[in-house]
Design a protein around this nucleic acid. Structure first.
Lengths: 129, 129
DNA sequence: CCTAAACCTACACCCAACGTCAGGTTCAGG
DNA sequence: CCTGAACCTGACGTTGGGTGTAGGTTTAGG
């Protein structure tokens, strides 16, 4: 009696439209915990987390295909022994990408801060020049 | 005699197709330093930097429209007095966005590192279990 | 002066990631 | 049993960020 929810509630809780959920399902990103006969989709709590994780990965700039390739790592026990080293490779690539993005982002932030200071100075100057 | 270059060279140096350069020009992201009559486009060194900056901002997840809104800050003197406060607003929004992205990215990195450790443990275990 | 390489414009087309719409089904409450 | 809300599928539309191509022009070098 794990209290499943329908797509409407999932949609609200994960802040994702139901059409998007359908779309993600076709791409293999999410699937209902249960689907009796040919009827409604029923989801569990994990689906909420899964959609939130997908959103987070998207914000990092991953495409849906790239996300599909790694999302299971977050929600399933490690796949068969043979694939573990490949999974490790993927993770290390993502780490490298994250590092690169971090330094680029840090630099960007510095630039923005510089520009903000410059703007504020110019505004102050204009206001009492 | 500042030795201008044509679009082909710019394209090669900035690693951006000439079609994309045309496209960016329509969006107001770049423009040739010179264009005699109705003929070829001629670019200077600044254009190379500009395209590289655009690429960097794209990697941070900015749309071309957002980039258009700020790119001039990097290459021109501050625009007219009236717009300065709006520019400041844009910059502050970008700073907030960058901060959010930074913390998300940091969290993501931690997750990936955890998963890497987990994978490595599993692999080691499998190799001598 | 001629030609090939590089350029020009304009329009059509592509892909990812959705959203919209139409027409039909299911389900819960009164 | 009936109705309205929630759901279903499938086809088509849209937006962002480009790419492809046709048909014409410019220019540098021999």
């Amino acid at each position: 009696m794990s209290s499943l929810m329908q797509i409407g509630e999932l949609s609200e809780r994960a802040k994702v439209s139901h059409r998007t959920i359908h779309y993600y399902e076709r791409l293999g990103l999410v699937k209902p915990a249960e689907r009796e006969g040919v009827g409604y989709r029923y989801y569990d709590e994990v689906s909420v987390k899964r959609l939130e994780k997908i959103a987070a990965l998207k914000r990092l700039g991953l495409s849906l295909d790239e996300i599909a390739a790694v999302i299971d790592l977050y929600f399933e026990e490690a796949s068969g022994i043979k694939g573990k080293e490949k999974v490790l490779e993927i993770l290390q690539a993502q780490l490298a990408k994250a590092d690169a993005q971090l330094s680029e982002l840090t630099e960007f932030k510095r630039d923005v801060e510089t520009n903000i200071a410059r703007m504020q100075a110019l505004i102050a100057e204009a206001k009492q020049g």
